[in-house]
Write a protein that binds this DNA or RNA. Structure first.
Lengths: 350, 350
DNA sequence: TCCCAATTCTGTAACGTTACAGATATGCCA
DNA sequence: TGGCATATCTGTAACGTTACAGAATTGGGA
């Protein structure tokens, strides 16, 4: 004879169909809703047998907790928000980041929500939105700046996040970055090894942290080799393809032009090579180019181009991992990683 | 003298802070929670002045409805799920689709959730997940097949969705597609206009609907011109870059090779051109290539390549629009659109 | 045998929202 | 004046979950 449980009253029995809830499972098993809830999350005060029975039934009926219920009650959204500049992306690396994130959160309860903004408007807006509305448990941001206002805001509010790229703020925070300093050094060394001596850098755009990193690696390697830097003025990879090409053509046609270029992006290298060719130079003869690679086609199409791949899928995985750990309250100092051509390197705080 | 409302009891007053809720607004204004709720959604039974007062206060205090509350009560998630094959994407067009979707849903209450899967596993799995858990109000899928099981499933369950690409099922459903038939026809006509007469098609992969469309346009244009098709066997753009290159090199080195190619993808064109060059041919001399363009770099880098751009950002906007309308119960027949090089063309059911 | 603590279960309340079924006030007509 | 429809507001309950406090059962020690 089954017990009479008022809590899971006849409604549950009368309920025709619909996906299983704690209440329907509780009714089926003659248990209280609370018991079922606890059994499913391995709470301590549940008998071993009951726990196993509940878990078995839940699995059999395909129980999945209602996200809205959990979210309303606990405030936990099980959402990670990827904040994206929708003006970015010549080369589609964003999709790789997204794939990386979904790789990492695949077996977790997290969903990925894409929150767009335009960098020509207010970059703070999407961050404030997520924090104020509590629409996610954690945030991933990119285009990180040395004194990033978003990072400061998130730190102040104690909101979990991870950045793609570093800041120069005092407080440690989770991030993943590509070692652009090492990249620039490698690039210079490769060019020097091919006998190049008049080197120019097509750098990342002003404002972003990794510009300084790449510049530093470039300068250091140059001075190690005892070489001067060939300046390109204010040219950066944020310039249009046409502008880069035209400027490089002019540079290449000057009296003593560079014979080696380091480009911070594949699209930049594209434009750069076109500029060289427009000036009558041949890649690999008058000049060599080393570039960061974003689109895979590039490497394949221009074998003379030296390409160093930034693995954005890996970046996505690392970023997702860092946010999830940050949400769980892990020490930020342990959530920092740096990728270089030979793999990822966990960073310990200095 | 303010009225005493038991409903919004002293708790609301005692509540220290936190974001505004219906209850807190109701308390502040001396109104019932229901009244506030109704006033904010322009329900009919609310006095004009009250409505305006409530809306003003809500705006002032920055009220935003709690999504979990709405979702739990109404079942409406305000989420659109983009189902993505994470093995796709040589060229990163996925980010453009995402940007297009976010463009369209920017001023709406919808959020975009990315739901990944691998096409080597079960393509039904993510669709079933969303429908069974009710984790979104609508779905966007791509890689559409003529008798797509996912589409059939969604139709059977009455679940709102839109497909990128068409099916050949009887029931009309929302979709957006690029007119690949028109593209192939244009491509053939352009090649014929340049005096080419031995034309080959590097088609989309078997299984996807748009392969047949492109094939049809290609064949029709050829027979209009009274020309035969130069067959490429089972080669498709799903083959690896290396394989396409090698196969095309062999073809180009044959006795009477094609002098005109139509490629279904930019990456395919990349490989194709490399194959031609490996066989000693020069693009624009021995052969011409017309291709669909996905990455913008391509057009710019190889001016001899004829490129027809598929605007994926537009596709994203159209797809988002179609799902939103479908969620609102619109007639599917009115939610079908076709893009061609000269813009989008709404389709009326035939 | 009795009592108390530990173990294992229970119901109630609440998160913020909306559907529903009233309740109150107002105005109009007979 | 009374009655009744209309306009405008109200409280209660429920969506599915978890925190909390409490109830029932068991076992062991005195």
């Amino acid at each position: 004879m089954g017990r009479r449980l008022r809590q899971v009253a006849e409604e549950a029995a009368a309920a025709p169909e619909g996906r299983p809830t704690l209440k329907s499972i509780a009714f089926m098993m003659g248990l209280g809703v609370t018991t079922v809830s606890r059994a499913l999350k391995d709470a301590p005060e549940i008998g071993e047998e009951t726990r196993r029975r509940v878990q078995m039934v839940a699995r059999q009926v395909g129980y999945r907790p209602n996200r809205a219920g959990v979210r309303l009650r606990t405030g936990k959204t099980n959402v990670i928000s990827l904040i994206l500049d929708t003006e970015d992306d010549m080369t589609g690396f964003v999709s790789d980041i997204i794939y990386g994130i979904t790789d990492r959160i695949a077996e977790s309860p997290y969903h990925l929500v894409v929150t767009p903004y335009s960098r020509r408007r207010d970059p703070m807006e999407p961050v404030r939105y997520v924090v104020e509305t509590g629409s996610a448990d954690g945030i991933i941001i990119s285009r990180t700046e040395p004194a990033d206002k978003r990072v400061r805001y998130l730190l102040e509010h104690g909101f979990p996040f991870a950045t793609h790229g570093r800041t120069e703020l005092d407080a440690a925070h989770p991030f993943h970055d590509f070692d652009n300093q090492a990249f620039a050094r490698m690039a210079v060394e490769a060019l020097v090894a091919r006998g190049r001596s008049r080197l120019a850098l097509l750098p990342p755009p002003p404002g972003l942290t990794y510009r300084a990193h790449m510049r530093a690696g470039f300068s250091a390697a140059l001075s190690d080799a005892g070489l001067p830097e060939y300046p390109l003025g204010d040219l950066s990879i944020d310039a249009s393809i046409d502008e880069i090409r035209d400027r490089i053509r002019a540079v290449a046609a000057s009296r003593s032009p560079p014979d080696g270029y380091v480009s911070a992006s594949g699209a930049g290298a594209f434009a750069l090579v076109a500029g060289l060719e427009a000036a009558g130079q041949v890649l690999g003869r008058e000049a060599d180019v080393v570039s960061k690679q974003s689109t895979k086609l590039l490497r394949w199409f221009r074998p003379e181009l030296r390409l160093v791949e930034e693995d954005f899928r890996l970046a996505g995985r690392e970023l997702a991992n860092a946010v999830m750990k940050a949400i769980d309250g892990a020490d930020p100092a342990g959530l920092q990683s740096l990728a270089n051509p030979s793999g990822v390197m966990p960073l310990t705080p200095c």
